[in-house]
């Protein structure tokens, strides 16, 4: 009786896991198939639907060498790295000033950041586009990351962690003669490294996922990113399934590896980023 119950639970868990894993397995297997093989085993569903009989790397070479994906991946990587370092640096600096220092206008600065957090990108897509165009940044690589460096979520995440550091640490450093300008880098930053990793991961997944913004702000292929490139494969009239699978795999692999290695930091960051004044 007990064994039957265990088996039932195991089966239920397996079924649940397969709801989330099936698309990944389908993508993984299909990305090594030629187009003709891909459509040969659609029905009935068998192991051949998932596992390539004659695996080929042609899809990847087509993407990388004919469709410019090598460049696209480089662009996306550059965009992600710049966004991660820029935003973690700037937002932790701002969080330091807002949470540990007081000055005339602090409340106003806080209000501006909180107000802008309430209006998500989708509601200011058009005016942001117009502003970026007006300052002459449209069609530049800078336009891809500059509007995304200041991030209220990250500021609140880092503020919460700065607030947990004993204030005596700051006080002692000042008494020892450390100028206020060096407290951030010498005293505070080393104490919130876990939060910095959390923020970096959140920003990395976000930047790697760029799609709507590059789509509306870029008019050339020079700075093309993965999100737009894969979307173009998908919306293309001659919809090339095998390339979508391979492109999807190229985009997913780094993200999944990074997530599996560092998931605890990501989860801690996502669930602790609430606003505390």
């Amino acid at each position: 009786m007990k064994r039957i119950k265990t088996a039932c639970i195991a089966l239920a868990i397996l079924l649940l896991a397969s709801i989330f894993l099936l698309p990944y397995l389908w993508m993984l297997g299909s990305s090594f198939k030629s187009r003709s093989e891909l459509f040969s085993y659609v029905l009935p569903v068998s192991w051949k639907t998932f596992i390539p009989v004659e695996p080929t790397l042609n899809n990847f070479s087509t993407l990388l060498f004919q469709l410019g994906f090598a460049r696209t991946i480089f662009n996306t990587l550059a965009l992600s790295v710049i966004t991660v370092f820029g935003s973690v640096l700037l937002c932790s600096m701002a969080a330091f000033a807002l949470s540990l220092l007081d000055f005339p206008g602090r409340k106003l600065a806080f209000l501006i950041i909180m107000f802008t957090m309430m209006v998500p990108f989708e509601a200011r897509m058009l005016p942001t586009f117009l502003v970026v165009q007006d300052i002459g940044l449209s069609n530049t690589f800078t336009a891809l990351y500059l509007p995304w460096l200041a991030d209220a979520f990250l500021i609140f995440l880092f503020s919460n962690h700065f607030a947990e550091i004993p204030f005596d640490l700051y006080h002692a450093a000042v008494i020892d003669g450390c100028p206020h300008t060096r407290i951030y880098s010498k005293i505070m930053l080393p104490n919130i490294t876990a939060a910095l990793v959390s923020g970096a991961l959140i920003k990395f997944f976000f930047a790697w996922d760029s799609y709507v913004w590059p789509l509306i702000i870029l008019r050339t292929n020079k700075f093309q990113v993965l999100g737009v490139a894969i979307a173009n494969l998908f919306t293309d009239q001659s919809i090339a399934w095998e390339l979508i699978f391979s492109g999807g795999l190229l985009s997913t692999l780094p993200v999944v590896i990074i997530f599996i290695l560092l998931q605890n930091y990501y989860i801690a960051g996502m669930t602790s980023g609430g606003i505390k004044e």
Binding site: A94, I113, F115, L149
Partner: peptide, 14 residues
């Protein structure tokens, strides 16, 4: 720096 970016790319568009 952060405040300036927030104003230029978020507040001004709104």
């Amino acid at each position: 720096p952060t405040l300036l970016l927030t104003i230029v790319f978020q507040l001004i568009p709104i």
